[in-house]
Computed example of a mutant assay.
Amino acid sequence: MDHALIIDRLSKQIREKRTSRGLTQADLADLAGLTRQKVIAVEKGTLSVSMIAYARVLGALDCEFSVIPARMPTLDELGDLF
């Protein structure tokens, strides 16, 4: 599976979790000890963002990584890659 698709899925899940909790990007940045710009980069799925930034954001959202078998990308996800 393409690494960009995995990061895209993770970033979308993070954004959905943040908004479902009623947090702004600035709120999440404060909780995670990051800048708002770094949270924006995480939510955009910027490939240069470090794993520690993802870990801090997930920790601030009371979430963690889970390794599961990959699933085939949807047509929408494939379209976003090109």
Rank of each mutant, 00 (worst) to 15 (best):
Y54N: 07
V39K: 06
K17G: 00
I68V: 11
L5P: 02
R18V: 01
E43L: 03
M51D: 12
R56F: 06
I7E: 03
K17D: 09
L81Y: 09
G33Q: 05
T24K: 03
L47F: 07
L75I: 12
P69K: 12
A55P: 01
L78H: 10
E16V: 03
R71V: 12
L23C: 05
L81T: 06
S11E: 09
A70H: 11
V67N: 01
S48K: 05
L5C: 06
S20T: 03
M72R: 14
A55W: 08
Y54A: 06
D8A: 15
E43F: 03
E64V: 04
H3C: 03
R36W: 01
D62E: 15
R15E: 13
S20D: 11
M51R: 10
A60R: 07
L34G: 00
P73R: 04
I7A: 15
D8L: 14
I68P: 02
M51S: 13
T74M: 14
V49Q: 08
V49L: 12
H3Q: 13
R21Q: 09
E16M: 08
A55C: 11
L5Y: 09
M51V: 15
R56Y: 07
E16N: 08
I7Y: 07
G45M: 06
L78M: 15
S66D: 15
E43M: 03
D8M: 14
P73S: 07
T35Y: 08
S66A: 13
L10D: 05
L31N: 04
I14Y: 01
T46P: 02
I7N: 05
L31F: 12
G59E: 15
R21E: 09
D27G: 04
A32R: 01
A60D: 05
D8E: 11
I52T: 15
G22W: 08
A70S: 14
M72V: 14
K38H: 10
P73L: 05
T35G: 10
A41V: 00
I40W: 00
D76I: 02
M51A: 14
L34R: 00
Y54F: 15
R36C: 02
S66N: 10
S11G: 07
T19Y: 08
S50D: 10
G33M: 01
D30L: 08
V67G: 03
K38T: 13
Y54V: 03
D62M: 06
I40M: 03
E64Y: 08
K38L: 07
S50R: 10
F82G: 13
E64D: 15
A55V: 08
E16T: 05
K12M: 06
G45W: 05
D27E: 05
A70G: 11
L10M: 13
E64T: 09
L10Q: 08
L81H: 12
G79W: 09
T74L: 13
S20E: 12
Q37W: 08
E16F: 05
V67C: 06
I7V: 12
